[in-house]
Design a protein around this nucleic acid. Sequence first.
DNA 1: CTGAATCCGCGATGATACTG
DNA 2: CAGTATCATCGCGGATTCAG
Lengths: 125, 125
Amino acid sequence: MEQYEHTCMIRGDGGRTLRGILDRICNKWTLLVVATLDGSTLRFSDLHAQIPGISQRMLTLTLRNLERDGLVSRTVHAEVPPRVEYALTPAGSSLIPPALALASWAIEHVPHIEESRAAYEARAR
Amino acid sequence: MEQYEHTCMIRGDGGRTLRGILDRICNKWTLLVVATLDGSTLRFSDLHAQIPGISQRMLTLTLRNLERDGLVSRTVHAEVPPRVEYALTPAGSSLIPPALALASWAIEHVPHIEESRAAYEARAR
DNA sequence: CTGAATCCGCGATGATACTG
DNA sequence: CAGTATCATCGCGGATTCAG
């Protein structure tokens, strides 16, 4: 079976199903939060410290979406001061391998892509 | 070696390198265009017909970015009427497997995610 | 500490009209 | 056929402030 016969998975219903999910996954912070939670249970402040550049608002929203989608669990400990711990669910963990596949591709092709961009810019004059 | 030790690939330099690439890949149309070009050389109008919902403008911009990044080749035939053919470069083709990995994950988890969302909504009242 | 609420700018996307 | 140009929109994401 040829490779391109599989791309129906991507194109499927005009890509609507896939894109509905991709829109959740491929926003600015989701993959980074998931990767940071991989193998660890972390508090809100830990995540905020370990993900440089993320705002409180975006961290909250990203975590809410992930919780809503069942990829992250949220545990509130009845203490003072409050302690809230986040962890990946099994479904969340299962996202790691494909995310790594994409990350590997990206890292492997960054040089080629940047080279190509530079050449394109040079040609543009 | 544990799985989570690999996530440094994602987190890397704070995720900047990866996200720079992901921002190119994970927009609304790029993956769909790449998937459609997988295994075929297609004209502009073919792509426009095979990707439901995409506007001329967005197809043009998406193809330009892909060409700029060296993932798609653009061949202009000096004819009347003009004929322009697009095809994946080797680098572009290499994006298919990781894209499929993500698509497979998405499709496999759509039921679970929608279920989780429904439960979340119900709880929210 | 862990958020929620508000305001705002900008970029991505889309609709439409025009061109070589 | 294969674009380009222009205008309008809309939501993401950031900064800031307030709250339990």
